[in-house]
Amino acid sequence: MKNVLFLSTSNIVGGAEIVSKPWLENTIHSLITLTSIDDTSKKFFSDIKGYNIKKRYYSDIIENDNGIKGKMSFFIKNIKTASQINKIINNNEVKAIYANNTADFFPATLYKIIYNRNIKIISHIHDMIQIDTKRAKIIKFLNRDINMFITPSNAVKENLMDIGIPENKIKVVYNSVDNSKTIKKIEGLNKLVRDKIVLLFIGAYNERKNAIDFLKIVKALNSIDDKYIGILAGRIEDEEYYNKIINYSKVNNINSIFLDNLSRSEINYLYSIGNILILTSNQDPLPTVILEAMYNNVLVFSRNVDGVKEMIKDGESGYLYDYNENIHEIAKKLNRIIKSNNNDILKNAYIDIEMNFTNKTKIRLIDEIIDYLE
């Protein structure tokens, strides 16, 4: 058993944070957490012993041209975080740092370079990283100071290998599904969707998740059958993009409902009233919403993107459409699927979850990786 510092610098609670919770609550290792001072993050990690980062930093400075002043601010904030890591490690005899989200590799490796060359660093990369970006170049450069990378899918593993990370330093650990069945009704929603075929979009409102294509599919389906209605639920990460899709829905008179900042129990309520989850992402390493839908007996129809094909066997446990498939062809295909008998598909999907995406498996694999780094 090791003392491990769990590092999560994000100021939001997103997929990487949510899927970390089962391991945090059940690992054999002794944990100390260092997480964002943001209220949402503090509440999420409140039941685990830990500390809060005194200053937040924003990883997008790695990608954006913010001038000398912006870059200096970024490095200073990360050096301060490394200094705080140093104090925690000195007081708790920590042997390894688990950098939970993609951007967390940076303060973790800064700590190693400045203070302690013997510390073991595990970097959990949850994103597909463009090869020609500054972030990719920094990860490649700091690779020598990172002992092991964890990825949620083979798609992300291959992406890291393309950047230049050796295959023997990358372990695939699939995300597990949140098995909470707590449901909190959303007032008035049941009345709005009565006698409708409910299509779900669950994910952040940004370009990557591509809600605009979801709306285009709903619009095309409405021309076939006016019983279709789309429910979109997510976190507003890009205000401009959010306003764009709201306006698109209004201008085109699309049967749609927009929700944001829902609790886990409210998301579960959406699964209880939804007929099918549609994933339209431009990029998605291993979308947890697919696991949630399959676990909650909701049919999945997804764009064939990144790690999705590791989750869905087309026509057996869900359905895939080609990355560049025409919207109207997608709508025709989807209309046929929804009006077919999908009981066997739903059963197969649930079996796949129980076999490949359980909390027990994820916890064991991460613990084994930490044990391996003697």
Rank of each mutant, 00 (worst) to 15 (best):
A103D: 09
N101I: 11
I97F: 07
Y115F: 14
I97S: 07
N78D: 15
N78I: 13
N118V: 13
N92M: 09
N66D: 03
K87M: 02
F75A: 14
I121G: 04
Y111W: 04
I97Q: 08
F75I: 15
G67C: 05
S123P: 02
M72A: 13
I85P: 07
K120W: 00
D104F: 02
I89T: 03
P107L: 09
I114L: 03
A82S: 09
N100V: 02
N100L: 06
I89C: 01
K80L: 14
I119A: 02
V94C: 11
N66G: 10
I121P: 05
I114G: 00
Y111E: 01
A82D: 10
Y111A: 00
F75Y: 14
N101W: 11
G70L: 08
K112Q: 07
K69H: 11
I85K: 12
N92T: 05
F75Q: 10
I89Y: 01
S123T: 00
A103R: 12
F106I: 04
T81F: 03
A82L: 10
F106N: 03
D65P: 12
I113S: 12
I97R: 11
I76W: 15
D65Q: 15
G67S: 07
K112E: 07
R117M: 09
I113G: 08
K71W: 02
I68H: 13
I121A: 06
T81H: 04
A103Q: 13
A99P: 10
T109R: 05
N90V: 07
A108W: 08
L110W: 03
K77E: 01
N86S: 06
A99G: 06
I68L: 15
N118I: 12
S73P: 12
K80Y: 12
G67N: 05
A108N: 07
I122A: 04
N86G: 02
G67P: 02
R117T: 14
K77D: 01
N116C: 10
A108C: 08
I122W: 00
N86F: 00
N92P: 07
L110G: 00
I122V: 08
N101V: 13
V94T: 13
I89A: 04
F74E: 04
K80C: 09
I85E: 13
N92V: 03
I122R: 05
N101S: 14
S83K: 15
N118A: 11
N86P: 00
A108E: 06
F105Y: 06
N66S: 07
K80H: 11
N78C: 15
I89K: 04
A108D: 07
Y115A: 08
S83T: 12
G70Y: 05
A99K: 07
N86T: 00
I85F: 10
K120S: 01
N91C: 11
E93T: 11
N118D: 15
P107E: 08
M72I: 14
K112N: 06
F74I: 03
M72K: 12
N90G: 12
K71S: 02
N100T: 02
A96Y: 01
K69L: 15
N91A: 13
M72F: 09
K95V: 09
L110R: 02
L110C: 00
N100F: 04
T102Y: 10
A96P: 04
P107K: 10
D65A: 13
N101H: 13
I114V: 02
G67Q: 03
S83G: 13
N78H: 14
A108P: 09
N100Q: 01
I76A: 15
